[in-house]
Amino acid sequence: MATHRIELSVNGAKQSAEVPSRLLLVHLLRENLRLTGTHIGCDTTHCGACTVLLDGTPVKSCTVLAVQADGREVTTVEGLEKDGKLHPIQEGFWEKHGLQCGYCTPGMMLSGCALLARNKSPSEAEIREAISGNLCRCTGYVNIVKAIEYAAEKMRER
């Protein structure tokens, strides 16, 4: 079976790899590139633990082939912090206790980021809708909503 030479940008760094057709993007990130902040929680595209930004758009990386990311930009949780400074969404999750076990957190934060990129002042309903492709079993979502509201406020101030 064929393999493919791909080049992509991951968190701003150029990466290249020789990948089999069937390699899932999540495995490329986790195993080839050792970016293990992107997690796997289901097989059926329901849980969103594997959420990454593909050209800025949140997608479930367990349902994207690595080869489909050829030539594109991927942002994972590891790419949120810039120059030693936390992204406001990271601050928000810490500040508002938006995480417990931390397993869904990277995906939640990336979905939150993408929402805030297109909506600077989301309502609670809009936040809940935006994270409805990400399952959390620990927090009951209350503090995740607050964390994203916190980040929105921080980002408006900047």
């Binding site: 986790r30 195993e31 050792r34 970016l35 293990t36 902040g37 992107t38 997690h39 796997i40 994972t76 949780v77 590891e78 949120l80 912090e81 936390l86 990271q90 999750f93 810490w94 500040e95 206790h97 995480l99 931390g102 397993y103 957190t105 990277p106 934060m109």
Partner: peptide
């Protein structure tokens, strides 16, 4: 108090079993 474990989790630096290689 803000959680002491969070700095690693919000950076994707938790160490879950499938992260072990």
């Amino acid at each position: 108090m803000k959680r002491k474990e969070d700095p690693r989790f919000i950076r994707g630096r938790g160490n879950y079993v499938d992260d072990i290689q």
